[in-house]
Amino acid sequence: MKLSFNLNGRPIEVEYEHQETLAEVLRERLNLTGTKISCEVQVCGACTVLIDGLPVSSCTLLAYEARERNVVTIEGLAKPDGALHPVQQAFIDEFAFQCGFCTPGMILAAKALLDENPKPSREEIVHYMDGNICRCTGYVPIVRAIQKAAQKLSNEK
């Protein structure tokens, strides 16, 4: 079967089967290994990707659900010239990761939050990011990075 969808801004067609998860198609068929798989039960958020702007757990969501929709993975955030997305840059500036395994999911969830709510309060950030787990940083720098990215994005406008 063929699955066609928009991946990181470009139309794509890939062979797949109905029982394949989106993470399997991304990692194994398209070699986009920035999407990480950890808990496999939609709890940790490492596998977060965006579908039509909304965060989903690609470890459990069937690739079937991506048909004719827009999927954004961590590979699609930086500009073609390599300039990082403000959320990515803020994570670096604020030391918001150590091992980095949760980072792609954290950054995509944070991007979705800021697209929807450009000036979130600290409480709103914590509530939205509640489903993304980091075992290194203790979250303080992550929240700070998101606040910084929000500020930068609003200055750009």
Partner: peptide
């Protein structure tokens, strides 16, 4: 309910 990803789907 659960987390934002579960609520989306």
């Amino acid at each position: 309910v659960a987390n934002v990803r579960v609520r989306s789907t």
